[in-house]
Design a protein around this nucleic acid. Structure first.
Lengths: 143, 143
DNA sequence: GTATATGCAAAACTTTTGCATCCTT
DNA sequence: AAGGATGCAAAAGTTTTGCATATAC
């Protein structure tokens, strides 16, 4: 749980929109949310909120390291709570479900590849796009 | 080199815009081009071209397997010629230069990870974002 | 009280679509 | 000749920005 103090620590005033957006990510079952997703949820909850503020807050949170931004294959960005542990993404093309994974071997190879070429990795993204199951997508039919 | 015949093979008429765009990718030093990049180059060359056509053609070429689309971290898509050999990308955050690489170990691990979870990989993207060298970016200073 | 943040509306960008005209086959 | 392709303009979708008002400290 993130508190007002945490926001101040990163140099941001603990305003209502910021607290609400953070809480939303912390309580959401769906980890990856777009600006539009966040905006809609805020509106559903009542209390007015502006889409522009959502974009501004998401950007600030990303710069502060609270959220991580991804682009996947769609034309818009999605954000997820940054909980320290790095992971990559396995995205089902059929139902859109996202699973996360971490593989130490892959991480090591990436480091080695960059080092061999004289690069220092700052960030990376690995997305596997796949079909999760035949007709009955376990995440679609939730069976 | 791609010819009119190749376009017909994939069910597309060999029109001037399509031939010009394909040639552009084949002759370009920069492998990754956005729709806007392509459009500008066509305009520079003379002969009128519409941005809408560029988008349509790029999409068709991608569906036909001639081009591959990537999203990197910017808000727009870039395309590159699909020359058969799969590869991943190492992008320099300082100078924007893109190097390509292929690592069999990583490919194998990806397959294994997806298989373990019951997924079948259709596509994937691995992007390493890094700094290529200290001040004198080899690709910036071309030294 | 002051500086910062918000909300609204307008703008900037990327991409898509409708439609009359043009070009390839 | 016929159907698909193009170009223009308008629209749709995402993200940014200007500015007056409201809020946190």
């Amino acid at each position: 749980m993130t508190t007002s103090a945490d926001l101040k620590t990163i140099g941001l005033k603990a305003t209502l929109p910021r607290l609400r957006i953070l809480e939303l990510f912390e309580k959401s079952e769906v980890r990856h949310l777009s600006a539009e997703d966040v905006y809609k949820k805020l509106v559903e909850e009542g209390n007015d909120s502006g889409l522009a503020t959502v974009y501004r807050v998401l950007t600030q949170f990303e710069q502060a390291g609270l959220l991580t931004r991804h682009h996947f294959e769609a034309g818009k960005a999605v954000y997820e709570l940054n909980q320290g542990e790095h992971h990559d993404h396995l995205v089902c093309l059929q139902c859109g479900h996202v699973e996360e994974f971490y593989d130490a071997d892959i991480e090591k190879r990436q480091e080695a590849i960059a080092r061999d070429r004289g690069f220092r990795i700052r960030d990376h993204s690995l997305h596997l796009y796949a079909d999760c199951a035949r007709n009955n997508c376990p995440h679609k039919g939730k069976a």
